[in-house]
């Protein structure tokens, strides 16, 4: 904005009035850029919290193998299996979602992950059977 103002002043000195008004109009058109509501929803393409649908999962283990940070783990719990995602390790790269053939793992645009309790950062999903 400052550079544009300097340009406008230079043009005014040189006597090119029309161009000066062009530049000033550009400054006015930019207006206020501040977000009035900063906590609004992220864009749809934003990679945030994982959404896992256990009924779709085929237990192929592709997401566990693809995770570069080792954030996804599968553990045997009683009869069924438990899939746990550690947000203390997840780098939100989206590789697990891209390798999943049945779209059981998907990225959502939810970024509200800040928490006081560290245990909240581990998301556990129970698999059927």
């Amino acid at each position: 904005m400052r550079a544009a103002t300097v340009k406008a002043l230079n043009l005014a000195v040189e006597g090119e009035g029309n161009e000066m008004f062009e530049v000033i109009r550009k400054i006015w058109k930019t207006g206020v850029v501040t977000h009035k509501l900063p906590l609004r929803e992220a864009s749809q393409r934003y990679r945030g919290k994982l959404d896992i649908q256990p009924h779709k999962c085929k237990n192929c283990g592709a997401c566990v193998a693809a995770c570069p940070a080792g954030a996804i783990n599968v553990a045997q719990k009683g009869q069924g299996q438990e899939l746990s995602i550690a947000y203390t390790k997840c780098i939100f790269c989206g590789l697990c979602a891209s390798v999943c053939k049945v779209q059981a793992v998907q990225m959502t645009n939810d970024y509200h992950l800040a928490t006081k309790n560290k245990n909240d950062l581990i998301q556990v999903v129970r698999m059927p059977q």
Binding site: L39, C90, H112, L113, A114, T115, K116
Partner: peptide, 21 residues
């Protein structure tokens, strides 16, 4: 640590939420 803000990196909005918490 009082509040954990995960994200790689977290959005500025997430930081704002963490400060509020």
């Amino acid at each position: 640590v009082a509040v954990y803000i995960p994200g790689c990196p977290p959005r500025p909005q997430a930081l704002l939420e963490g400060i509020l918490r």
